[in-house]
Design a protein around this nucleic acid. Sequence first.
DNA 1: GGTCAAAGCTTGAGTTGCTGAAGCACCTGG
DNA 2: CCAGGTGCTTCAGCAACTCAAGCTTTGACC
Lengths: 151, 151
Amino acid sequence: MGSTATTTVPTNAELMEVLAAVGAAYFQDFAAAAARHGLSSSQAKALGAVQEPVPMRALAGRLGCDASNVTGIVDRLESLGLANRAAAAGDRRVKIVVITAEGREILARIRGEMARTHQAFTEMTDEQRIALHSICSQVLPVLAGRTGGAQ
Amino acid sequence: MGSTATTTVPTNAELMEVLAAVGAAYFQDFAAAAARHGLSSSQAKALGAVQEPVPMRALAGRLGCDASNVTGIVDRLESLGLANRAAAAGDRRVKIVVITAEGREILARIRGEMARTHQAFTEMTDEQRIALHSICSQVLPVLAGRTGGAQ
DNA sequence: GGTCAAAGCTTGAGTTGCTGAAGCACCTGG
DNA sequence: CCAGGTGCTTCAGCAACTCAAGCTTTGACC
């Protein structure tokens, strides 16, 4: 394959285009896998964000949405038996969302069923895997806005 | 985590994690920039998908949602003066969505204002830019499911 | 030429996601 | 103990999304 990299450096616009396309495709793969298990993408995303127990308010921060919104999402996860609300020790206002064993299993199954994503990975060389992981890790703090805002 | 590039190849799970994080951060940057101009992310995404005139049905395919949904989105774009419905020559059933000059300007402004994304790009070396673009381009056909489905 | 299935778009009902304002329960500092 | 702030929920209200049904137009078949 093209080990002779055509050394034309892509412009910002070109990078944005492929990045957006990859992001959108990844998201659709994720949403489709979640839907097969009866979860919306928001619910699945929330499930992924509570692998560690998290207070409602912090979960809203992780999901980038309003706290009142999280109430409904966790309501549905709870009614499906995938998560529970637990009281926080020391502050009875706080409710901590805890994933159940079943929730953990569903989450693992969803991630395992993202077929297109897995196939995309298998078609990458070791060098590409290393490069991609390195670039993403380097770029993430900037992109996620650790520049002056606490998470 | 040696700063000496430990050439350990990342696992699928590790790749999925950083990819998901980057995708989510990119999307939030996009949504925030769109919101500054009074557009929801769906509307902005649709605007980006009609830089070339596109029939309603094809637009639904590009956005990965139901055709009936596109009606409402284009309604709003039209009421904002960012796009228009035009009759297709040769088939009077078809309505073609055409972006307006104002729509094009807003879109350019949104893309220009994705500050975090641009900053992330500026912090990449030329080699990283080339590698990222190459990997995304290679992976995109698989990830987007060109495996048997016409777009 | 007439008829009928199919395609393209819209509409309507219903669910979810999301926000903002209001409200209740609880903590903390004076 | 009281005032103000914090955490969660509830309640409109809107956008997005899906499915089913409906309308217009098209294309093919008789």
